[in-house]
Every structure is written in structure tokens, then in C-alpha cells.
């Protein structure tokens, strides 16, 4: 499943500057995050300074510089979600898994990320766990959602 950096590079035969962002996206998709090691490899492949690549990568919200948990929780903080109480939902999730947004739990099981809007405003507030959507979440329903992933993990 996991492609290594070299095999990703092979998909970009005539590469240049415009391929930088797609390349970083592919690396992140494969590894879950951008390690310094991989950024250096991208830099050598594209012949762009490492500092320059970090300049681009840190500009965009999508790129992460630390590993994500096995279950990556994205909390939507769009307007509709906010009006319907996503900030309390976020606090509850932080309380349940005991890390703050933007971090990963020590055992590497969960991580939380705030996203601007996942485009499911009609079902606000929304969270997404590894791409699976949970709609109209409440402080009460968070616990059972998180517990359901904890039980899968234990098995």
C-alpha cells in the first residue's frame, strides 16, 4: 500500500516546479506526513532548495510535519458548524482523547486536526474520522463515536 518516495518520483518523469505541490501531496498521502528526510529527497529530485520547499509546504494547511494517529479526526470549524456548536464538540474530543488539536496521542492511536470546512454544512456539526463522516455530532455522541474506534483498536 505504502509507496516509497522513489516510486512516487517515477510518476513524475518530466518534473519541474509545478509538480512540487502534487509531489508533496503524494508523499503525504503515502506516509501520512512530511518528514524532513522525505522533504530533502524531494528537494534533490526537483532541484529546489529545502528551505524553499518548507516555505511552500508550511504555507498550506494541508501539509503536516508530524505523524498522524491511526485514527485521524478532522473537526470541521466552518461557519455552519460553529453556529451549531462545533467549538464545544472540539473541546469534548480533546477531553476524551486527552490531546489538544493539532497533536497525536502518545500511543499513536488518535490525532485531531481542525479543518476549515469539509463541505457538509447541511449536516453540521460534522467530524470525519479517517475520511468517514459523522454528522450532527453532539457532546453526548462524541464519546460513543470515539469508544467505537477504541474497541476496533483493541481487537
Amino acid at each position: 500500500m505504502k509507496k516509497n518516495v522513489e516510486s512516487i518520483f517515477e510518476q513524475y518523469p518530466k518534473s519541474g516546479r509545478p509538480d512540487l505541490i502534487p509531489l508533496l501531496q503524494d508523499v503525504q498521502e503515502s506516509y501520512g506526513w512530511l518528514s524532513e528526510e522525505n522533504v530533502v529527497k524531494v528537494s534533490q529530485f526537483l532541484d529546489i532548495p529545502v528551505s524553499n520547499i518548507f516555505g511552500v509546504a508550511t504555507f498550506y494547511n494541508q501539509f503536516r510535519f508530524q505523524p498522524v494517529g491511526e485514527y485521524h479526526i478532522q473537526v470541521c470549524r466552518g461557519t455552519a458548524c460553529h453556529v451549531l456548536g462545533s467549538s464545544t464538540v472540539l473541546k469534548e474530543i480533546e477531553k476524551q482523547i486527552k490531546v489538544k488539536a493539532g497533536n497525536t496521542t502518545k500511543d499513536g492511536v488518535f490525532s485531531i486536526e481542525i479543518v476549515a470546512c469539509i463541505g457538509a454544512c447541511g449536516l453540521a456539526p460534522v467530524i470525519s474520522v479517517n475520511g468517514e463522516f459523522h454528522a450532527k455530532v453532539t457532546v453526548e455522541s462524541i464519546k460513543s463515536i470515539i469508544d467505537s474506534y477504541k474497541t476496533i483498536e483493541k481487537k
Binding site: R77, G78, T79, A80, A116, C117, A120, C121, G122
Partner: peptide
């Protein structure tokens, strides 16, 4: 690149 939180028609 529908970045406006609260709009989802393009999607």
C-alpha cells in the same frame, strides 16, 4: 477551491 466555509454548491 471552494474555501468559503458555509458554501458547498461546487462540491
Amino acid at each position: 477551491d471552494e474555501g468559503d466555509p458555509g458554501a458547498f454548491m461546487d462540491r
